[in-house]
């Protein structure tokens, strides 16, 4: 039977976005941070999709994962740029992890892809954090004006955002790598792929 490749990709994206939502939900039962962002392996399905179907489809999967989260939970909108970064950009950059070749069969590119995607997401999430806190905290706190040339308020925002996001991104990334490698080891990430080519 001649397979229509496009349909398979679309369906797989849909099912794996669903997987991401479910994993996020299951991990959310265990622990969730107050400002969104929890230690979760929800990124793993997005990485798997982008390894299997290319970074382009990975980016789409990430964007739609963000969109579905807005539809299902009341989204966390504090300002418009923060909303776009937190819900779309932060998840879209995960898909860029798929630029590594052979990530489904070899452990090194697999881990590197997750590292790249998570780092980019960490950067975007931190910038979003800085943007929104900058709107809600007075930055001209008069005293002390010496840390990296920023005022105390500004440096508190930058450091706080970097720390807060590292608090969940680092464990999430490690969990994704450990669990992802275990799944790769059992050779279940490449199911269905060979029959289509």
């Amino acid at each position: 039977m001649k397979k229509n490749h496009q349909v398979a990709v679309l369906v797989e994206l849909g099912v794996f976005v669903a997987m991401a939502v479910i994993l996020d939900f299951i991990c959310g039962i265990i622990y969730e941070l107050p400002y969104g962002g929890s230690i979760s392996i929800a990124m793993l399905p997005v990485f798997v999709v982008s390894y299997r179907r290319g970074w382009y489809n990975g980016i789409i999967a990430g964007a739609l994962f963000g969109l579905i989260q807005c539809l299902l939970k009341p989204p966390f909108i504090l300002s418009i740029p923060q909303f776009i970064m937190d819900y779309f950009l932060a998840f879209m950059v995960i898909g860029l992890g798929g630029i590594f070749k052979n990530a489904l069969s070899k452990p090194l590119p697999f881990s590197l892809g997750i590292l790249l995607g998570s780092t980019l997401r960490y950067i975007v999430a931190s910038i979003a954090g800085i943007i929104f806190w900058a709107e809600y905290i007075p930055t001209e706190i008069g005293f002390m004006n010496n840390l990296f040339g920023m005022s105390l308020g500004e440096s508190a925002i930058v450091v706080g955002s970097l720390l807060y996001n590292a608090l969940y991104m680092l464990p999430s990334m490690l969990l994704c790598v450990v669990i992802g490698l275990a799944l790769q080891n059992r050779k279940i990430l490449a199911i269905n792929l060979t029959s289509e080519k």
Binding site: A18, I22, F25, I68
Partner: peptide, 21 residues
């Protein structure tokens, strides 16, 4: 349309896969 299709599939499969889980 592709995006909408993916979202519909995903919304449709969230309960199913959650049930399996």
């Amino acid at each position: 349309e592709d995006f909408a299709l993916i979202i519909s599939i995903s919304l449709r499969y969230i309960p199913t896969i959650l049930d399996e889980a």
